[in-house]
């Protein structure tokens, strides 16, 4: 019989110490919407669950230095209700809001979505496109890493023993810039992304794309930036030719698998479609801000 212990530390140091002490079978509880499913299915038998939601900074959203700091355990619903964040980073917010049902949104956190390290995590493509970073705390203090550095393989992260993600930081929003996220699922809700595409772009004063980042989910072992896809639309006004190049580049960036949720062929094609469509939405939003 597994003996599970539960701790809800109230400081980062205390949490890190508990995680170290708990050893290999210690698990961080953030929103819990993945952890409890794994517990229930018997895929995970932790000796210790460390609930980090009471660590200062883990929950809440604040503006700082022109950007945003999101407590990494903040539930999706709270993120969706933050008007200023939604205005600045609509793509990030719509990605977070696509994680599961309303009920899941009441609990699910960005930290959990990233640290579950699923290649299909909805928040990851938008955050990577946005150049978001994670504030990671642990036994050796605080460090900051780009979101794309967290997941290194399906189910595996780069976090060291005792480390957990405390905050997500979004940079200041440049003028004439916007983002968007789209995913493809068989139903209209409640599914895991078969493909996800996040696009973040900045226009120059003439409406030409000066900077663009495209990140793709569920088409490789980790969510990853597709630099060629971003490059395909830089210097354009997202005309048909640019969209076709984007579609090509997005497809070329794919290394998907076939599984119960989608085939290699389908995932690859849809990556192109969604990259185009997300780019069009982001472009429209950015123009609206010009």
């Amino acid at each position: 019989m597994s003996q599970i212990a539960y701790l809800a530390p109230t400081s980062a140091d205390e949490a890190a110490a508990a995680l170290i002490k708990g050893g290999a079978t210690a698990r961080v509880l953030s929103g819990g919407t993945d952890l409890l499913v794994q517990l229930r299915a018997g895929r995970l038998a932790p000796g210790l669950i460390v609930d980090v939601k009471r660590v200062p900074g883990a929950i809440g959203i604040r503006q700082e230095d022109g950007g945003f700091v999101i407590g990494a355990s903040t539930p999706g619903m709270t993120i969706g209700e933050h008007a200023a964040l939604e205005k600045a980073w609509p793509g990030v917010v719509e990605a977070v809001m696509l994680i599961g049902s309303t009920q899941i949104q009441g609990r699910a956190s960005i930290a959990g979505n990233l640290c579950n390290a699923s290649p299909a995590a909805d928040s990851a493509p938008a955050l990577i496109a946005a150049r978001a970073t994670c504030v990671i705390v642990g036994p050796s203090g605080r460090r900051e890493a780009p979101v794309e550095a967290i997941g290194i393989a399906p189910g595996r992260t780069s976090l060291a023993k005792g480390e957990f993600v405390l905050e997500i930081r979004l940079p200041p929003r440049a003028a004439r810039s916007a983002d968007a996220y789209l995913r493809s699922i068989p139903r209209t809700e409640m599914d895991i992304a078969v493909v996800g595409a996040g696009v973040n772009l900045t226009l120059d004063a003439d409406g030409v794309i000066a900077d663009a980042r495209v990140a793709l989910g569920a088409v490789g072992p980790t969510v990853a930036l597709a630099p060629d896809a971003g490059a395909a639309i830089i210097g354009t006004r997202l005309d048909e030719a640019a969209l076709a190049r984007l579609d090509d580049a997005a497809r070329s960036a794919c290394q998907p698998i076939s599984d119960k949720r989608g085939t290699v062929d389908f995932r690859t094609k849809i990556a192109g479609v969604l990259a185009r469509r997300a780019a069009a939405i982001a472009y429209g939003r950015a123009r609206g801000r010009a």
Binding site: P186, R187, T188, E189, M190, D191, I192, K260, R261
Partner: peptide, 16 residues
């Protein structure tokens, strides 16, 4: 069975 759960069995939801 690979999809023995409501997540991947996919019965219609209200928005479908």
């Amino acid at each position: 069975m690979e999809n023995a759960g409501f997540l991947d069995y996919r019965v219609p939801v209200a928005s479908d």
